[in-house]
Write a protein that binds this DNA or RNA. Sequence first.
DNA 1: ACGCAGTAGATAGTGCTACTATCCACAGCG
DNA 2: CGCTGTGGATAGTAGCACTATCTACTGCGT
Lengths: 214, 214
Amino acid sequence: MRISELAEAAGVSVATVKYYLREGLLPRGTATGRNQAAYDEAHLHRLRLVRALRDVAGLDIRTIRRVAEAIDDERLSLHEVFGVAQRALDETDGQGPPSSDVAEARREVDAFLAELGWRIAPDAPARGLLGDALAALRRLGRDARADVFRPYAMVANEMASWEVAAVSGDMPRATAVERLVVGTVIYGAAFEALRRLAHENRSALVAPAAEPTT
Amino acid sequence: MRISELAEAAGVSVATVKYYLREGLLPRGTATGRNQAAYDEAHLHRLRLVRALRDVAGLDIRTIRRVAEAIDDERLSLHEVFGVAQRALDETDGQGPPSSDVAEARREVDAFLAELGWRIAPDAPARGLLGDALAALRRLGRDARADVFRPYAMVANEMASWEVAAVSGDMPRATAVERLVVGTVIYGAAFEALRRLAHENRSALVAPAAEPTT
DNA sequence: ACGCAGTAGATAGTGCTACTATCCACAGCG
DNA sequence: CGCTGTGGATAGTAGCACTATCTACTGCGT
């Protein structure tokens, strides 16, 4: 198909498709002339993936490119793609050296994770994010320790087991890797929405009965 | 304290504090002269909240202002603050009319939520987000139905019950409301990090044993 | 055979966000 | 008395995700 058909099918403008081509989010089509190229179903699928990652999960273009590169890199195993994707998703833009309370919180988080017995790379960026969250709680006056996260960790571990189980089969690598990324990112966004809905639900249950319009 | 002390204590520049004052994220200090104002612990706390919401949860300034206004509005009950916060968090920037597959997905999500028996406002923006996620899954070639979210909904409901229970006590409104917001937003970010860490852990468990460095 | 919509590729411009810098008149303080 | 700091205002900046425009060309319908 031509570029305009590709754009139309994915619901974006031709200019946007060109932009994605420039930025390496989308591989170029096979040239059929000096100014003509053909795109196929794989391009359409990739384009839809890019839009889902942008619109549903809110990822930025640089992150999407890194994730796409990990998906395309045939040398990476499923587990390695996980690692790359995680590092891509967690923009590791820590500029200065962390202040002492953040450093302390991160240390406690590391100890907590070790106690859980989880197998996590020492440089996984999500460690830092969790430490930052703990430090933020303390700055806001809560005397939280790292194990306030324990129930959340149990739940997260269960959810992760579903998603890994849904993928670690005998399907071809490309399929498996894509399911993995989509599962992580799109289901993550879906869960965030469900969490808000559940909050509203539980909050309604304990709220005093709505006042009869005075 | 003076503005420079306030800025120092929160780890931001004086210019940034002025910016937040302009934007209404931070109430002005009490004037002690034509060009002098005093800030207190409440200002420092609010400033830390703003930074936590920005740095840890990644909220934008407009959202933070809306959340802060809901916190400060004494007329709002706990449950109402939840509603306001939720609507503030989910930037409802849907421009055009949704395409037919999105509309269909949203309808199915509504039916699913009704089946769960959750009490949720009909206009809760998170409904749309969940529908968008479902539509995205389908566009990517999965034949998902709304009840693929069921296990996630169960988990979300349990987590929400913890957070609501931690707040619906006899504490003063200001304290309760702030705990609520912080719980929703900061724990949400923490959970996201934990989910990634758990993914890495579960993925390591099924990965083929690491090759001995060749 | 002709002309025009469509195309590849490049470069420049736009709108938005979250600051950041500069300026002013003044004021506290050593 | 001067100099750093202040409140308040206005203007500028960097980064992002497009979007618009331009050039040179070309497939395709008539």
